[in-house]
């Protein structure tokens, strides 16, 4: 049924502003915003890992899962758009339990030996463990042997520290436009890979811009010549670039 006259329902469809509830707080939002964006605007913190402002969200780490009243399903806040009358719960015993378990799975998947990591003290995975009150890992560790790719002149890729958030893949593709990085393999065998599975140093397209290094949340991508806890990352270029592009 199509009609040219504006009915109340079609008028509602055109409204761009919605109101919703996040953790008992009434908030208003633009209908194309995500739950995560609206929560952040209202100082409601939802933990994230793969999310990076300025890159297309993936919804893949599942840390930012939230509950929506009336649905048994959980939704990734970074990719779920707000809607009128939505009631979002960002913190509950169930969510806390799942977030903890997911972070634990990341710790057992690779070999995050924090004490000898160049990113010790400045690592988002480590910080997430603190935030979620994780004092030990209940899951058995996998101890899969990983390689370290030191073939690049300036940088190093240590698969032992990688959480497969694909921030590097996205920043290289979406911002730098080089698409050096991608994911090879599947399941537990997934690895970040340069070009068509070349050593990073042999990549023809890498511009050595270092963007991937500085938005990597852990010690997986780092600068060479750094010792334990010495790697300082400067991800601030990304919001700056994003603002500049939007205003262009």
């Amino acid at each position: 049924m199509t009609t040219m006259t504006a009915s109340p329902s079609s008028a509602a469809h055109d409204i761009q502003v919605v109101t919703l509830k996040i953790d008992d707080q009434e908030v208003s939002a633009s209908r194309n915003q995500t739950i995560l964006q609206v929560a952040a605007e209202n100082q409601i913190e939802i933990p994230t890992l793969c999310f990076m402002p300025g890159l297309k969200p993936m919804g893949s780490c599942r840390i930012c899962l939230v509950e929506l009243a009336g649905s048994p399903r959980l939704f990734a806040a970074c990719v779920t758009r707000v809607s009128e009358g939505m009631t979002v719960i960002t913190d509950s015993p169930r969510l806390r339990k799942y977030r903890k378990q997911i972070v634990e799975l990341l710790f057992v998947e690779r070999n995050h030996v924090c004490s000898v990591c160049v990113s010790n003290g400045r690592c988002e995975l480590q910080a997430l463990a603190v935030k979620l009150g994780i004092t030990h890992i209940t899951q058995p560790y996998r101890y899969d042997k990983m390689v370290v790719d030191s073939s690049h002149d300036l940088f190093r890729l240590d698969h032992n520290r990688c959480v497969l958030c694909t921030r590097c893949v996205r920043v290289c593709d979406q911002i730098e436009g080089a698409h050096v990085w991608d994911v090879a393999g599947r399941g537990i065998d997934c690895r970040i890979t340069a070009d068509l599975n070349l050593p990073w140093g042999d990549s023809d397209v890498c511009t050595s811009c270092g963007k991937c290094v500085h938005i990597c949340p852990t010690g997986a991508l780092t600068e060479k010549g750094t010792a334990v806890a010495e790697m300082r990352k400067q991800p601030d270029f990304l919001p700056y670039l994003t603002i500049m592009r939007e205003n262009h």
Binding site: L105, L106, G187, I188
Partner: peptide
């Protein structure tokens, strides 16, 4: 399932292996 998981999300990628 473990070998067919695409590896994109953490619970399926690591959870099925565990």
């Amino acid at each position: 399932c473990k070998s067919e998981s695409c590896g994109k999300c953490v619970p399926c990628r690591v959870g099925t292996a565990q």
